[in-house]
Design a protein around this nucleic acid. Structure first.
Lengths: 183, 183
DNA sequence: GACAAAGCGGAACAGCGCTCCGTATCGTTC
DNA sequence: GAACGATACGGAGCGCTGTTCCGCTTTGTC
């Protein structure tokens, strides 16, 4: 078994998560590592030891919310009027999540350093959930990966432009998917 | 009237355009300025003098193709079976353009330095064209800005993943827009 | 208290955008 | 073709990033 972690290491990890959450809100998930280190009052080495890649840090900060989103899938399926309504509601949650975390949607598509595995994490955790909802809705025109990536892409960019509302486009997409005999 | 440009300046500008086009293909539109400078065999100062921002360079390289796309709008309208078919064909051209220029779709949404005005250029030049096509198709659910940005966003990301095909999603979007009585 | 082991800090290096100014080239004038 | 101002060029240098690496500190244990 692995040796128990030192107390200061545990403390620092918590401090870092709180600091990162704060900085992500203020400056987006692309914020400089130095800024997060400063906010936490630790050195950069400490960040890299606890979270080797940027994606690790982002995942750690948002893990609870991703988990909640994943668990909401089956729940919605059992409480909604129809499977398709559940799908719509779930996608609403997903979009809420993406648009409230500055730059997260962009980071997921970014091929720049540190973010590669973010994409994979979201797909791994939420893809199957989305798949169940699609299946229950009888939608076979599209795979979960493609739908989620498309939705993620539509959420990219500044959200302060009244001319662009990703939800409208996502609604259109979903309308295109809904077979005629479903609500 | 402005003084005539020096011969070496004209020569360099041409060299730079050719070099940038080459590098954009090889390394995407995010390629380091130094790489373009090296390819052209000039110093970085020369690039910045001719093209003060990155967007200026990108626009200069692709101006002809954007122009062609803009002019294709009215042409398609007069040769297609229906206005909606023209819209679809035009969007196909637009998507072709975006997916063949590595990173261009991403750059248009990028809020990072140098690319801000790219977005504006595309909207200014192609937005009205798209607007005409929407109008002729009788589509009032969506504005050209929103549609173009949505399409652009859907084209973001690596294009070597068989699981994700932006055209499928764009087709769905368009299906959602097509009123029942149109082809 | 002593002593590994674990963890920490931040200097240092590399890559990038962008500026700035000494130098080279051009076009013109005689 | 020589001389000279205007124009344009090159690239060193600055600031900001990510990332590594190692001497020093703290911790847990005996």
């Amino acid at each position: 078994m692995p040796p128990r972690k030192r107390a200061d290491a545990v403390r620092n990890e918590q401090t870092l998560l709180a600091a990162a959450a704060e900085v992500f809100v203020r400056s987006g998930v692309d914020a400089p590592i130095r800024e997060i280190a400063a906010e936490a009052g630790v050195g950069m080495g400490t960040i890299y030891r606890h979270f080797p890649t940027r994606a690790d840090l982002v995942v750690a900060v948002y893990r609870h919310q991703v988990e909640a989103c994943a668990e909401a899938g089956p729940a919605l399926l059992s409480t909604s009027d129809s499977p398709f309504a559940a799908l719509r509601a779930w996608i609403d949650l997903f979009v809420d999540f993406l648009v409230t975390k500055h730059g997260l949607a962009g980071a997921m598509q970014s091929d720049s350093s540190g973010f590669e595995s973010l994409h994979a994490y979201f797909i791994d955790r939420l893809g199957p959930v989305c798949g169940k909802l699609l299946e229950a809705s009888g939608i076979e025109d599209i795979q979960p990966y493609e739908l989620m990536r498309g939705i993620g892409n539509l959420c990219i960019g500044r959200d302060d432009d009244p001319r662009y509302n990703p939800r409208r486009l996502i609604t259109l997409l979903l309308d295109g998917l809904r077979p005629a005999d479903r609500g």
